[in-house]
C-alpha cells in the first residue's frame, strides 16, 4: 500500500532553503514525489458577469398560457393602419406580456435584489425595443392580415421568444464578484537528495500558484530504495521573483508501506 509523507518549507522574502528532514522509519522505498508551491497574496475583488441559462422552454410555456393567448389579438391584427395597430399593441398587449414574463422568470441563484434588477432590465428591454422589433423587423402587421387569431398569437409568441433570445446576452446574466487568482510565476529551483548523494530532483523549476491537478497526476514516479533512518536534504534556490511574499513549498513523498500483519 502506498503512503505519503509531507514536508513543508517556507521561504520568506526570497530566502534560500538548505535543510534536512528525517524520513519516517517505515519509508524504505520511495515510489514517487510531488512538489507544489503556493504564495499567499492579497487578491483583488473584480466584478464579472456570468451568463445564465436561457429559459427557452419556460418562455414558450408562459407564452402559451391563457393570460397571453386570450389577449385581443384579433382586434390588434384587424386595425386599419400599422401605426394604430402598434399603438394598441404597446398600450394593451405589451404590458401583459412583460408582466407575465417578469413575474414568472425566477432564478434561484439570484438574491431578491438581483431578481428585481433582472426583472427591471427585462421589462425595460421589452418596453423600449420589442414593439419596434415586431413591427419593423418581424413585419407582424403584414403577416397578420391573412391568418387566424390562434396562428397570430403563436406568431407573436414565437417572435417574443426570438426577441428574448437575441438579447439574451444583455439581460440573462448575473453580476458576480470574484477574486482574481494570483498569476503563476517561476519562483526558484529545488534539489532533493536522499542517501547522502542521490538526487531525487536536481534544479527542478518550481512554478508558484500553478493550477494543481490531483495527486496521481502530480506525482513524478521514482524507484529509490532507502537506507535505514534516511534523511532528505532540501535545497531551494530562490530566483528573487517573490519580493516580500512568503512561498510555502510542500514536498509530497510517496512510499511503499509494508503492512505489519499479526
Amino acid at each position: 500500500m502506498k503512503r505519503y509523507f509531507v514536508i513543508t518549507k517556507q521561504s520568506a522574502s526570497n530566502s534560500h532553503i538548505n535543510e534536512q528532514d528525517l524520513l519516517p522509519a517505515s519509508c524504505k522505498l520511495i515510489t514517487g514525489i510531488a512538489v507544489n508551491a503556493t504564495v499567499k497574496q492579497e487578491s483583488e475583488l473584480v466584478d464579472i458577469t456570468q451568463d445564465m441559462i436561457f429559459p427557452q422552454r419556460l418562455i414558450s410555456d408562459l407564452l402559451l398560457s391563457d393570460g397571453i393567448t386570450n389577449l385581443f389579438y384579433s382586434y390588434l391584427r384587424t386595425r386599419a393602419s400599422e401605426a394604430e395597430s402598434k399603438d394598441f399593441f404597446e398600450t394593451d398587449i405589451l404590458p401583459d406580456i412583460v408582466n407575465i414574463l417578469s413575474q414568472n422568470l425566477k432564478y434561484t441563484c439570484l438574491s431578491q435584489d438581483e431578481q428585481a434588477s433582472f426583472n427591471n432590465s427585462l421589462a425595460e428591454l421589452f418596453h423600449t425595443q420589442f414593439a419596434d422589433y415586431l413591427y419593423n423587423e418581424a413585419g407582424i402587421f403584414a403577416k397578420g392580415k391573412n391568418i387566424s387569431s390562434l396562428e397570430f398569437a403563436n406568431l407573436i409568441a414565437q417572435e417574443t421568444l426570438t426577441f428574448a433570445y437575441l438579447h439574451k446576452s444583455d439581460v440573462f446574466l448575473r453580476p458576480l464578484k470574484a477574486y482574481k487568482r494570483p498569476e503563476p510565476y517561476e519562483c526558484g529551483n529545488i534539489s532533493l537528495l536522499v542517501n547522502g548523494n542521490s538526487f531525487l530532483l536536481r534544479d527542478y523549476m518550481i512554478t508558484a500558484n500553478r493550477k494543481v491537478r490531483n495527486m496521481s497526476k502530480e506525482v513524478i514516479p521514482f524507484h529509490e530504495p532507502l537506507e535505514v533512518n534516511s534523511n532528505i536534504h532540501t535545497v531551494f534556490k530562490s530566483n528573487k521573483n517573490s519580493s516580500d511574499n512568503t512561498i510555502t513549498i510542500r514536498i509530497y513523498i510517496e512510499y511503499e508501506h509494508e503492512r505489519i500483519t499479526t
Partner: peptide, 27 residues
C-alpha cells in the same frame, strides 16, 4: 491515510475528471 498538511487541491474532484482518476487510493 493522508498526512498532515496535505493540500486539499490534490484530492479535489473537478468536473472534467472521472471519479476513478481523482480518488486517492487506499484499502
Amino acid at each position: 491515510i493522508i498526512p498532515d498538511d496535505t493540500e486539499v487541491a490534490l484530492l479535489h474532484h473537478n468536473d472534467d475528471m472521472s471519479i476513478k482518476d481523482v480518488a486517492f487510493p487506499m484499502d
